[in-house]
Design a binder for these strands. Structure first.
Lengths: 206, 206
DNA sequence: GTCTATATACAGATAGAC
DNA sequence: GTCTATCTGTATATAGAC
């Protein structure tokens, strides 16, 4: 069996690729090792030479997919808060609505109770990492005086929540979108609320 | 086989109860018809006398669970917007965080791509119905002048989103909550943002 | 409608040659 | 490491008696 340290074996990568496609497409239980072997042009025994079990193959797939993407660098230059938040929201909502992210979310959520380690890995590398990066941008905007907020983490939580609304739910469930639903409209509304709530010019508290 | 119209057979109900417990606890694939039969104190053949297949048993379970609960009646009396929104948020977040709702969400999301009809039934009776009821309350608050908003549906979407944040995600994935996370804190923050954005006294637009 | 017993298929995992 | 061939368990679904 291959060691834990990287073994950039071609077959191993082919197995992981085929397994990822199958798991994300069909879910954990509906994916068979025979199918993965077929997709990777490899015998089933070869899979077991690299991965001890279906569980561990699944874990390797999820872990590999968790080790990447983030890319919420602080907006270039010194844009105003509205522009900065809009850029961040576009990036995040685009990511959330991508077919790969939705498939990943479905399969991890469905297996989270049976594979707690995977649930944590996904959470840390996905939602938690994204939140941390956006919170840092929020904090920077607050330092510049572009936003007035006491807790960037709380504000970030709410901001992200406002992006995962009905549009996200429908995509997640595979339902068609209503005509008047668009990511841009969600983004505009969310940013608008953030600016009303935390914009630099705040109404005197009643 | 039993007709489609209601047959309040005791065994049928026992089967549905056992199946619901199993599906919500273990997920669709990991639930076996043998297990359901055991849980319902019934032979497996009896299950197939009532339900044509595992798929249809699952559908019946989900459908039955979808035909109920809502209960977002407009707050009693004429409370101010902050009180009304807080009451609504408490009710909704309590529902979202309940173990049954979380289990339902997990299993429906995981099977949504393979059973589109179920996904739609869940969406209509769950998220869509809840949103409609809350939007009506929003609209009533706007009519009273307690909120200033042009589109109650949009505002409702954002409000609900702000309740489904990190706290919800961690519960969904079965992760322990951070000490400083509490439903009440999420509710207070969300309501506060709504009041800042849509409260009757709005700042002049800069 | 309900049961016992069984058909049939396919899953995950392994043995052993190369 | 990789293959072919196989073991073994268990799943969905059904036959046929009552």
């Amino acid at each position: 069996m291959a060691k834990v340290g990287r073994k950039p074996s071609a077959k191993r990568e082919a197995i992981l690729d085929a397994a990822q496609a199958a798991f994300l497409e069909d879910g954990y239980a509906a994916t068979s090792m025979d199918g993965v072997a077929l997709g990777a042009c490899v015998s089933k025994a070869t899979i077991y030479a690299h991965f001890a079990s279906k569980d561990q193959l699944f874990a390797a797939v999820i872990q590999r997919r968790c080790e990447r993407e983030s890319v919420f660098q602080a907006p270039e230059g010194l844009p105003d808060a509205r522009t900065a938040l809009t850029q961040v929201a576009r990036r995040l909502l685009g990511l959330l609505l991508s077919p790969e992210a939705l498939a990943m979310y479905r399969v991890v959520v469905s297996e989270s109770m049976r594979q707690p380690d995977l649930a944590r890995a996904f959470y840390e590398s996905g939602p938690a990492a994204g939140k941390a990066q956006i919170a840092e941008i929020m904090a920077e905007l607050a330092r510049r005086g572009a936003l007035t907020l006491s807790d960037p983490w709380q504000a970030t939580d709410m901001f992200i929540g406002m992006l995962r609304t009905d549009l996200f739910m429908r995509k997640l469930l595979g339902l068609p979108l209503r005509e008047d639903q668009s990511p841009e409209q969600v983004i505009d509304t969310a940013v608008d609320i953030m600016m009303r709530a935390y914009g630099p010019v705040r109404p005197p508290v009643a």
